[in-house]
């Protein structure tokens, strides 16, 4: 049991180290003095003394490896990700932390909705394979699976915001909303509705496809015949025997699709000017704000490794066969 967990942890650590190496290496490859980059790039006016102070402060006069690499590591571990170019002199870590809650709300809610709806629909479609629900769900899911979420977002804006005027399609708050009131909360939810729908729709397609495939494999298993022979009702067979087995591949495949989650969230935020990491990414890309970009990469890398770790551990809880 602990050997498996050890192996999973080791793999996570190796991946994290590679993320760090890439982050460190990419950062050094950019032309220009890293010290001035750290201070805010060539576009800001900094004095030579400041640069020199930074150089020594960051140990840039020392060899790249191992000294600088170790410095980078210790600074990163302390949450020091350098300074933004665009938002002069601001700590990258602060910028990211400021934007993170909005993204967590958006992605968390969308994931929750997508997993709930997608897995339920997929499981049902696989259970009743060939039925009307199956055909409809599979068709729509494959289409959603092939559609970029941000485009869904743009369509939602055209329909529900521009044409119908039901919901706002821009930002997180209406200008002039009173701070601290119930109206504000409602206003926030109304702004959240379309972006969450866009991200969730993009993900539902995948969950349906995956859960359906998993379930259609499970229903042909011999232990399902045993369950039927035992006189279980369809519902009992589904809940007691099929569901958990079908969840095994779903857990693995969900982590495989994390790229879609990240891409979906970042681009959808760009569509709706949602004040989260996605918006920050676009600003950083446009301003070539590399420190911020590097910080975002670190955040995404660590989150993805963590998500995989959780999925691997969860798999062990679901499937006794891998536990030894």
């Amino acid at each position: 049991m602990s050997r498996r967990i050890g192996r999973i942890l080791l793999r996570a650590v190796i991946t994290l180290v590679m993320v760090a190496i890439l982050n460190f290496g990419l950062f050094r490859v950019i032309p220009g003095d890293p010290a001035s980059l750290l201070l805010g790039g060539a576009r800001t006016s900094v004095t030579d003394e400041q640069i020199e102070a930074q150089r020594q402060n960051w140990g840039l006069d020392r060899p790249l490896f191992p000294d600088q690499a170790l410095d980078y590591l210790s600074a990163t571990l302390q949450g020091d990700l350098g300074y933004s170019f665009k938002f002069r002199g601001r700590h990258v870590a602060d910028l990211i932390l400021e934007r993170l809650p909005a993204t967590i709300v958006l992605v968390g809610l969308a994931q929750f909705i997508a997993i709930l709806c997608g897995v339920m629909l997929g499981v049902y479609a696989g259970w009743r394979r060939g039925g009307a629900v199956d055909h409809a769900a599979t068709g729509v899911s494959l289409a959603l699976y092939s559609t970029p979420s941000f485009w869904l977002g743009m369509l939602l804006v055209v329909i529900f915001s521009t044409a119908l005027g039901w919901l706002p399609g821009y930002g997180a708050y209406s200008p002039g909303a009173n701070v601290g009131s119930l109206d504000l909360a409602l206003d926030y939810l109304r702004h959240l509705a379309l972006p969450v729908t866009a991200v969730a729709l993009g993900l539902i397609g995948q969950y349906v496809v995956v859960a359906r495939a998993a379930m259609s494999d499970v229903v042909t298993e011999d232990y399902m015949v045993t369950a039927r022979a035992k006189g279980l009702t369809g519902g009992q067979m589904l809940m007691r025997h099929a569901f958990r087995n079908a969840m095994l591949p779903v857990v693995t495949l969900i982590t495989l699709n994390l790229g879609y989650v990240v891409a979906g969230a970042i681009t959808v935020e760009a569509v709706f000017a949602w004040p989260g990491i996605g918006g920050l990414t676009v600003e950083a890309l446009n301003a070539r704000d590399y420190p911020v970009l590097q910080g975002i990469f670190l955040l995404l890398g660590v989150s993805i490794v963590m998500a995989n770790l959780i999925a691997d551990l969860a798999y062990g809880l679901l499937d006794p066969r891998v536990r030894q």
């Binding site: 991946t15 993320v19 890439l22 990419l26 490859v29 950019i30 982590t255 994390l258 790229g259 879609y260 990240v262 891409a263 970042i266 990414t281 890309l285 070539r288 590399y290 970009l293 590097q294 975002i296 990469f297 995404l300 890398g301 993805i304 490794v305 995989n308």
Partner: peptide, 14 residues
């Protein structure tokens, strides 16, 4: 583990 999108997002501009 690392999605192509995430890697491309930082590698491309650099």
């Amino acid at each position: 583990v690392m999605p192509s999108f995430v890697l491309a997002l930082v590698i491309t501009p650099v």
